[in-house]
Write a protein that binds this DNA or RNA. Structure first.
Lengths: 241, 241
DNA sequence: CGATATTTTGATCGGTCTCAATTTGAGTGG
DNA sequence: CCACTCAAATTGAGACCGATCAAAATATCG
């Protein structure tokens, strides 16, 4: 974990904060407390229940956020993507309320809550930018709730796949490797059900499943969209800043 | 809809804003744009898709927030309770992303987004208070996602009932009338399933169902809690500020 | 009291889970 | 390069939970 003091052009957190801090010098004293770190796939950023005092901003890669019941049942909440905050909910708590695990190589910046609070106190524009970001997350959460409450297994899988596609309309490849278990945990299904749905979609030439098993390609976006049950809103996993 | 200029002691929005506005006079010019309004049960505050330009703060009563798919399937998102914001997510959108309907007599204050933004710009403490509130909502949403993804019908109903009980531990009565349909829509179940689960709980003397059918009383909180599957976190519907 | 909405309850159906076996792929060391 | 091991994915058979359809019972309200 090294300080971020000298990497303005590469550190998203610095960048974000600097952008919204008109008197730039306000930020200087903080740069020592902003840290940049990389994680390999399957590495844990933090566990649910860990004492929380830092917030993270994802520079690149994907992070799986999940929460569990005492009996071990595990539920995926969302995928953290570039330019999103992670662990912000702990701001006025003592513990993280979910687990964050890298699913790809990941770069994050982090800084202590108390420093973030200090910056927001001094800079209302930044605080408003944060309000904005949280509002967007809330909308994503609402879409997830809708989908879990209303969609059947096919609709859920279709929505997930579409929401994982990056914005360019012509893009076909899903840019991250999710196991059947990962998908099942996000969708409130079992891995077998996910596998069956994907197999059927593949059989019907809607998607292509490489022998690999994880990476996937969308062949027929229109037919896939027709399977979502009209859950139009990009299911909240994707959508960049 | 009357102005709120003269009701500092009764208007939660004024109160909230005044509390966090150190130079109180900053707020004065806004009071003309803060409006107080009351709604009767079943009245709609706003519909999903309506053009959005005001945010609401609930002074008293309960508001059901829900979102629908194009084919009509409807999903409850949460119950808005006293001291919570409603319609905040539209802050940088053009439309409300869900429908808000009173389930009890309701008092709300509202003001235009642009005024809220102006106050936040001038007052970072208020903006931080908003960040706080949104973080709490996000945690509630995460609990809802967890419960929809992991819990069976009995566990869902039990969690809902417990989450509807106001804080005092000895309190037994659920303070708002929800129809079976309301509950089903919040829980991702059918009204028949909800009815069956409630009937069984009543038969086993865990709850009491008045002939009324809507108001309910918790008889054995411990046994009800044992049915939640360890979904400890108050299911995010309740929990006051 | 009659009309309507809501709830309860029953019978059946179907989608998803569960359990199990098999297949496939990735990594390792000979 | 080929066995071997281990993890992940696929596929099948059966069970079960909740949905669906239908009817009866109970409230609410004019």
């Amino acid at each position: 974990m090294k300080s971020c003091a000298g990497c303005h052009e590469k550190c998203l957190l610095c960048e974000t904060l600097l952008c919204s801090c008109h008197p730039t010098h306000q930020l200087r004293p903080l740069q020592g407390s902003i840290h940049k770190k990389t994680y390999k796939p399957k590495e844990i950023l933090f566990h649910e229940g860990d004492p929380a005092n830092r917030l993270f901003l994802l520079s690149s890669g994907y992070v799986k956020l999940s929460t569990a019941l005492p009996d071990g049942r595990n539920q995926g909440l969302r995928l953290g993507m570039a330019r999103q905050f992670i662990g912000f909910e702990g701001l006025n708590e003592t513990c993280y309320s979910y687990t964050a695990e890298a699913v790809t190589p990941v770069e994050v910046c982090s800084l202590p809550y108390k420093d973030m609070l200090r910056i927001m106190e001094q800079n209302a524009h930044l605080a408003i930018a944060v309000v904005d970001a949280l509002n967007r997350e809330l909308q994503r959460s609402n879409a997830v709730i809708r989908n879990l409450g209303l969609l059947n297994s096919t609709e859920r899988v279709a929505s997930l796949l579409l929401s994982l596609l990056p914005p360019p309309v012509h893009c076909q490849d899903i840019p991250l490797p999710l196991t059947r278990t990962d998908m099942a945990e996000m969708l409130g299904l079992t891995l077998e059900t996910v596998s069956r749905v994907l197999s059927r979609m593949s059989r019907e030439d809607i998607i292509h499943l490489p022998p690999n098993g994880r990476q996937m390609r969308i062949i027929d976006r229109a037919r896939l969209a027709a399977l979502t049950g009209g859950a139009t809103a990009p299911l909240a996993y994707a959508v960049g800043a």
